[in-house]
Lab assay of single mutants.
Amino acid sequence: TTVHVNGVTYHFPNPEEAKKFVDRVVKEAGLTVEVKGNQWDVE
């Protein structure tokens, strides 16, 4: 699973890890998340 955060790419072994990361980032920074298949874009 690939997560893009403001142009930076993070790779995770599974969607659960990616979701935990995204949830944390979104809570801390108040960002928006767009999910496209296995790819997350966070802005």
Rank of each mutant, 00 (worst) to 15 (best):
V26R: 07
V35K: 03
V5R: 02
V25T: 05
E17Q: 05
V3P: 00
E43D: 12
V26M: 13
V35W: 11
P13M: 10
K36N: 15
Y10L: 05
V5G: 00
T9F: 08
P15F: 14
G30W: 05
V33Y: 06
V42A: 10
E43Q: 13
V25A: 05
H4K: 14
G30L: 07
D41K: 05
V3S: 00
E34F: 03
V42G: 09
E43S: 12
E34L: 04
W40G: 09
Y10I: 06
K20A: 12
V8N: 06
Y10G: 01
V25C: 10
V5M: 10
N6A: 08
A29N: 11
P13F: 07
T2A: 07
R24G: 10
V26L: 14
Q39L: 09
V3W: 01
V22W: 10
G30K: 03
V22A: 07
V5W: 12
N6F: 10
T9W: 07
V8F: 08
F21E: 01
V42Y: 09
T32R: 05
K19L: 09
H4R: 14
V35E: 11
V25G: 03
E43K: 13
V5H: 08
V22N: 03
N38P: 14
E17H: 03
D23T: 03
P15L: 13
V42H: 09
T1Q: 06
V5P: 00
D23A: 04
K19V: 06
Q39I: 12
G37I: 10
V25D: 03
V22Q: 03
D23G: 02
H4F: 13
P13S: 11
P13H: 09
K27W: 08
N14H: 03
E43L: 14
F21T: 00
F21K: 00
N14Y: 03
T2P: 02
V33W: 11
E16F: 06
E28Y: 06
V8S: 07
G30H: 07
V33C: 07
A18M: 04
E17M: 06
V3N: 00
F12H: 00
E16G: 04
T2H: 08
E17T: 05
V8E: 09
E17K: 01
H11T: 08
E43M: 14
K19R: 11
D41F: 15
V35R: 00
H11I: 08
G7E: 02
V22R: 03
A29Y: 14
K19G: 05
V8K: 10
K36G: 15
V3I: 09
F21P: 01
T2Y: 13
H11Y: 13
G30Y: 06
D23M: 03
K20T: 05
T9P: 14
N14K: 02
A29M: 14
A18R: 00
V35A: 02
W40M: 07
V35Y: 14
D23R: 01
P15M: 13
A29T: 14
W40Y: 09
N6T: 02
V26P: 04
Y10V: 03
R24L: 13
G30N: 10
V26F: 13
K36F: 15
D23E: 09
E28P: 07
E43A: 12
Q39R: 09
K27H: 10
Y10N: 01
V25Q: 05
W40N: 07
Y10F: 09
D41Y: 15
V5Q: 02
G30S: 06
V3F: 02
A18W: 02
V5N: 02
A18F: 03
H11F: 13
V5S: 03
D41I: 15
A29L: 15
K20L: 08
V35L: 14
Y10T: 02
N38E: 15
L31H: 09
T32A: 11
A18D: 01
F21S: 00
K36P: 15
G7P: 00
N14M: 01
A29W: 14
E16D: 10
A18N: 00
E34N: 10
P15G: 08
E16A: 08
N6H: 06
N6W: 09
R24I: 12
H4Y: 14
V5K: 01
K27A: 12
E28S: 04
D41M: 14
A29I: 10
V22F: 12
H4D: 06
P13R: 09
F21C: 02
K20C: 05
Y10Q: 02
G37T: 05
V8H: 08
V25K: 03
V8I: 11
A18Q: 01
E34H: 06
E17L: 05
V42D: 10
G30T: 07
A29C: 14
V8T: 08
F12A: 00
W40I: 09
T1K: 03
N38Y: 05
E43V: 15
E16C: 03
D41S: 09
G37K: 04
K19A: 09
E28I: 06
E16W: 11
H4S: 14
E34C: 12
K19E: 09
G37W: 15
K20E: 13
E16N: 05
V33L: 08
G30M: 07
T1F: 13
V42W: 08
N6Q: 06
G30E: 07
K19M: 13
N6S: 05
P15N: 11
V42R: 06
K20P: 01
T1H: 07
F12S: 00
F12C: 06
P15R: 08
V25Y: 11
P13T: 12
N14L: 02
Y10H: 07
P15K: 10
E17I: 04
E34A: 08
V5I: 13
E17A: 07
H11K: 05
V3Q: 00
V35M: 07
P13D: 12
H4W: 14
T2N: 04
L31C: 14
E28R: 02
E17R: 00
A18P: 00
N14C: 05
V35F: 13
E28N: 05
W40Q: 08
N38H: 07
K20H: 09
D41V: 15
K36W: 15
P13K: 10
T32Q: 09
K27L: 12
P13I: 10
P15C: 09
H4Q: 13
G30A: 07
T9I: 13
V42Q: 10
E28V: 06
V22M: 08
D23V: 02
E16Y: 08
T2I: 13
